[in-house]
Write a protein that binds this DNA or RNA. Sequence first.
DNA 1: TTGCTCCTCACGTCACGTGAGGTGGC
DNA 2: TTGCTCCTCACGTCACGTGAGGTGGC
Lengths: 159, 159
Amino acid sequence: VSSAPAPQPTDADRASIRLRIGEVAEQVGVSTRTVRYYEQLGLLGDVGRSAGGTRWYTADDVEVLGRIRDLQSVMGFDLDQIRVILDADRRIDELRAQWVGGADARRQQEILTEAMAINARLRREVAAKRAQLDGFLRDLDAKAARYHEVAAERGLDVS
Amino acid sequence: VSSAPAPQPTDADRASIRLRIGEVAEQVGVSTRTVRYYEQLGLLGDVGRSAGGTRWYTADDVEVLGRIRDLQSVMGFDLDQIRVILDADRRIDELRAQWVGGADARRQQEILTEAMAINARLRREVAAKRAQLDGFLRDLDAKAARYHEVAAERGLDVS
DNA sequence: TTGCTCCTCACGTCACGTGAGGTGGC
DNA sequence: TTGCTCCTCACGTCACGTGAGGTGGC
């Protein structure tokens, strides 16, 4: 952990960064088995390999893995649902790359509309989950209050 | 769905209510297989049976099943972690029942202290999860804003 | 050259899903 | 008595965990 400010990686850096599976697994907080499993399911696209067979990962791969982990642990989605979201992400990146190419405007609109719909649906689901958590929090606070009452009634020391 | 106000069940009602597995499963929103699995793991205590072998559930059972489902779907806990919380719940209920009995004050204090500790830990975990969800929500809003920008730049209609 | 990390099977586990084949209860 | 629900195996699935046995790379 350096105290110097982390240098912002340029696009060239992002593409040239080459991490081994153990490094990305630790950065993302999953096991190497998990990283290989996601590749097997096709969630990571094409993963680079050295001549000897060792996998090499880029900064983009790390970002995707972090996104999978978030969608899984925070929202509880299964890998099929996550695949849909990742696919939309990728199509949007593609669209962004075609910015100069001036591709079919009709197709661009389709992709953008779909991405916005997925984003909006996700937002609703996250908001609903937040509401559930708030209810949970209120229950816990009510319970804590009751515990304190009982302790006071019985003269128990639970400071 | 009746429009009349639901009568509050008395303690006697709660104990005498007898539901079959399909009814409780539907009320809680899980499968009958899941209800049997939780019983097999010992999360439900002793479940009643008719002479023919059919399981009978009380209102208390429905409450426990709902709690399991919440702890699982909202917080993402596994069944071993949930077992710890349910056990604490049960010890607290026991303590409440011993109110008149005037049991060992030292033991009561132990139980109450443990329940409060579990409650406090749970509260911290729920609050942390809420913070994660808030971060997620901000990301989604930023993304939606970018989509709208891109659409405006390119003159796409994504109303 | 020595370790540490990587590789590919392949079986195990958790939390159920999903029939198969048979009995129970309003 | 007729259905619909319940019962118990038991195999399947998803998302990995966990060795076994062997090779790779600074």
